[in-house]
Nucleic acid binder design. Structure first.
Lengths: 272, 272
DNA sequence: TGATGTTTTATCGACATACGATAACTTCTA
DNA sequence: TAGAAGTTATCGTATGTCGATAAAACATCA
């Protein structure tokens, strides 16, 4: 965490108001609150009235009023004139759009992903690691299986996905173990590898093979094979994977057909 | 630059304190600044040092310091420990993800888009209107033409796209005209319909036919046909379109093959 | 290698900003 | 039609943010 923590004699008047803040003097709290409002919306709460926002985002009415007003003016929230309810607007896509369009990795991976997509005719993904999770940042759907459960921006636990294991296997083992240990390990399906020891075996094996596989470890019926993309210092910065339906391939077929392709793609992207 | 603004007061107003703000007492300016920092990043500025952020986002060093710090703590920016440069992180995808996952229209359109995609084997899109622009919110690529110029979150001018015209044609004409008039009309290609009068004709025609077409009006080689989706009050809230390569279809073929399909899809989505 | 300029990190007093209570108003409900 | 519930507007004031600047890290070059 931040290196500064010192300068404040703890015994002050500040306790009076109650809130013991993180006391980070560089932190602009209003920004945090604004995002608390925005992320209060989602599948559970597609639209909310002012007072709902206040209660879901855990702030008083006045704050909710100020922040919804601000975010509406900025275009991130839309307010229905009749129902007085708020919802996220399409402008929320802008940030992610800028990220995708500016990202080095996404950019350089694109042609290789396209090639892989045409060659395999199966679903191809680019993912990036974020602590214990992976995030889908690019996606080419197979023509047959149009799965809309996963879209760009979807997160999954690293430990039970092929891209996750592939990336973990390229970290110094201590780091990988640390991530595993702070993951919420559990069986998402009957086939999930979720025990610490088993995961370590899987990671070591993946390190050796250069690819990782996952068979119905998160979604029923899904098989996936992945290889990690390394940055200039050799650290994993992403993964490319091919996802297919279990019913159409055995484990061995997946490996024999796709392993060298995903490895080659990941390798090529790594050294562009 | 997006057109939404609080309406900048032309305050050449002096300024002991300088900033004569929009004087909206409910506006939390810190939030606006935070987004100014975030949207300073993009294709031009993939990574920036602190002082670059300050200059691009037009704020003093201290502010840049506070906001980059805040945004980094919140996870939206990443800082490279050695180069000390900032870049957007994959967390920026979260907001848009919540929008997509929570949005009624996107949700109900999905099965129809998938169906259309399989039936046509061409690229299918769902777009939403935002003032003078359209935004791509869902996208199924044709297996042959993997165009990565357009991704979810991409914006285009409404006036020179099929979805844009289709939606404009469902507005009361006065409103459509107002939008046209505040658009930045210009020829993006030699084929762009960009003159006010011609656009009005096109809009009226689209209103009659129930669909709109665009042939190389924005991208060279692109043909597109679209129909608007109406909300419960009959106002356009989106559009579905099929995009193909000009080289493979004549205008008439596009119309004869796809017009009834996109109209049917849009119609079905409208009344779910 | 040390001198000099540049960028980043840390600190702090001052005061404008955002806070939050509440009043005024509007919309539902019974 | 009264009364509740929710939304919008107002306002004095404590707080949190501002922005100048000091200290430290880093880069450049004689």
């Amino acid at each position: 965490m931040s290196t500064l923590e010192t300068g404040k004699p703890p015994s002050d008047k500040e306790g009076a108001a109650g809130r013991e803040k993180s006391a980070d003097p560089l932190m602009v709290m209003s920004v945090e609150k604004a995002f608390r409002v925005l992320s209060a919306f989602g599948r559970q709460h597609q639209t909310m009235s002012l007072s709902q926002v206040a209660s879901v985002a855990e702030m008083d009415l006045s704050s909710a009023q100020r922040f919804t007003h601000t975010l509406t003016k900025l275009g991130f929230l839309k307010k229905d004139r009749e129902t007085k309810r708020f919802e996220l607007s399409s402008k929320t896509l802008d940030l992610g759009y800028h990220f995708l369009r500016g990202n080095r990795l996404v950019d350089k991976a694109m042609p290789y992903l396209m090639h892989l997509s045409k060659e395999t005719e199966e679903t191809v993904n680019l993912t990036m690691p974020e602590d214990t999770e992976i995030i889908f940042v690019s996606r080419f759907l197979s023509r047959h299986v149009l799965n809309t459960d996963v879209i760009v921006g979807t997160r999954m636990p690293a430990f039970c996905t092929a891209p996750g294991i592939a990336m973990l296997s390229r970290l110094p083992e201590a780091e990988a173990v640390a991530i595993i240990d702070r993951s919420n390990l559990k069986a998402h399906t009957p086939s999930t590898t979720w025990r610490r020891e088993d995961l370590l075996v899987k990671i070591r094996q993946s390190a050796q093979q250069g690819y990782a596989t996952a068979f119905e470890e998160f979604y029923h019926g899904d098989a996936s094979i992945a290889a990690a993309i390394l940055d200039h210092r050799g650290r994993p910065e992403g993964a490319v994977n091919v996802a297919v339906s279990c019913s159409r391939y055995t484990h061995d077929e997946v490996v024999s057909r796709f392993s060298s392709l995903v490895i080659a793609a990941a390798h090529a992207i790594s050294r562009v």
